[in-house]
């Protein structure tokens, strides 16, 4: 920059912090309240392409079909299809590092969902690992009513 004079240059500290409420949508409301009240993970199935979407949505983006009423229950168990080990600390993260975020394909679903994976050494996570949801003891009224996933069997 042309004028990079640094004397008499003052920085003020600020912060954006603004509580919000977000309508979860009708489809999202059913998903979240069913998760909260019945500990069941729901998806929606497009009958045109036979895909089951988790998280649910009201339209199949490929078929442009209205699928909002085609609820199916998927299992709370599935396979790890991808993962990362988060080794940095930050305020938006749900756990202290290191922890694992995984893409998990639940049995009965066609789109993997992302969630926290615990109960396994982060360096021992492998593709195809069978994992199951661990529900939170008290409701959070959010997706975090699934507190995390953990391996079904002890890893070798």
């Amino acid at each position: 920059m042309k004028n990079s004079e640094e004397s008499d240059s003052y920085i003020i500290h600020g912060k954006l912090a603004l509580p919000y409420t977000y309508f979860a949508g009708r489809t999202g409301s059913t998903f979240l309240t069913t998760l909260r009240d019945q500990r069941i993970i729901m998806g929606v199935k497009c009958t045109a392409c036979n895909r089951v979407f988790v998280p649910p949505r009201q339209t199949c983006e490929r078929c442009m079909a209205d699928i909002r009423s085609q609820w199916v229950t998927v299992e709370s168990q599935g396979k790890v299809v991808n993962h990362t080990v988060i080794r940095y600390q930050d305020k938006h993260l749900p756990r202290k590092p290191p922890f694992v975020l995984a893409m998990i394909l639940l049995n009965g679903a066609d789109t993997p969902m992302t969630h926290i994976l615990e109960g396994v050494n982060p360096d021992r996570v492998v593709k195809g690992m069978e994992v199951a949801a661990v529900f939170s003891p008290a409701t959070t009224n959010t997706l975090l009513d699934i507190d995390h996933f953990e391996p079904v069997a002890e890893p070798p």
């Binding site: 991808n82 993260l93 975020l101 992302t114 959010t142 997706l143």
Partner: peptide, 21 residues
């Protein structure tokens, strides 16, 4: 804010999934 933000997804860790794949 429903399915992704509470998990801490950001552009770095989302890129990590793509990198691994």
């Amino acid at each position: 804010p429903f399915y992704s933000r509470p998990l801490g997804l950001d552009y770095l860790n989302a890129a990590a999934f793509q990198a691994r794949a």
